[in-house]
């Protein structure tokens, strides 16, 4: 998927869970879900489930392990979409 389209889609997925508006406004590939957006870890599970639903993919736990940033999420989503 094209980069900007993917970021936009991820941005709408994380929105309900963010606790730092400023960091959310400036969301980029470098944004960290916990450190920057202050998403609590219980909600991080929700983010992952919502990503699975939105892209119709399944993320294994050892892949989820690295999903701490927008960039890492983009890489995983793209590799899953390519493998489809």
């Amino acid at each position: 998927m094209e980069k900007n389209e993917l970021i936009t889609k991820l941005k709408s997925i994380v929105e309900p869970y963010i606790q730092d508006e400023e960091a959310f406004k400036n969301l980029s590939e470098e944004t960290d879900f916990v450190k920057d957006l202050k998403i609590n870890s219980a909600n991080l599970v929700d983010v992952i489930l919502d990503v699975e639903d939105a892209f119709d993919i399944r993320i294994e736990n050892d892949e989820m392990e690295k999903m701490l940033s927008v960039k890492a999420a983009m890489d995983i989503v793209n590799s899953k979409l390519e493998a489809k």
Binding site: S41, V45, N61, D62, M64, E65, M67, L68
Partner: peptide, 25 residues
């Protein structure tokens, strides 16, 4: 069980200096 995992994870990060997201571990 969740709070046990989270509290322990905070020690793991200090001890080994690396982060991960996989509460099942």
């Amino acid at each position: 069980l969740w709070s046990m995992k989270e509290a322990a994870y905070k020690i793991y990060v200090q001890q080994f200096g690396k982060q991960f997201f996989n509460p099942k571990k």
